[in-house]
Amino acid sequence: MTQSHDNPAHKQALTIVGFLCNWCSYGGADTAGVCRFKQPTDLRIIRVPCTGRMDPLFIARSLILGADGVLVSGCHPKDCHYAVGNLYARRRLEVLKRMLPFMGIDGDRFRYTWVSASEGQRWQQVVTEFSEQIRSLGPNPGVTGKSAAAATA
């Protein structure tokens, strides 16, 4: 995971962390690559066995330390390789997504989605859309404390 860059010039390149399930979305991304669909290059992919493995901690840590966006993608609901992993995951991820703004982190920097191994085209679309969304949000300051008011008066 990447720490925020202090120099805004470095921010031209976005840091988007992608957690992809091994059985569907990782395959989907592969399919997109094999088909030579044009994709933005900002995504750093981390393969996870299942979205059910996604501890919200992974996402929180990325965003706290200044990743510009986090994308989680797995098998379509009811299509999980482990039958129910993504059904647990979607509740957790939705709760997290709604929680982020309460703590002052833009919920739009986090997205979860479902892409199967055959959906190369859909993958291209998801990545492109999300990258554009993040680009429009600009760099994530993370939780550095630099903008925080001094704790003592």
Partner: peptide
């Protein structure tokens, strides 16, 4: 009390929590 925080802007919320949690 939650709603009161929700009425703040995103930046204000971040600043609020940074100020509080810094202690």
């Amino acid at each position: 009390d939650v709603a009161a925080i929700e009425r703040l802007s995103l930046q204000e919320r971040l600043a609020f929590w940074q100020g509080e949690l810094d202690r």
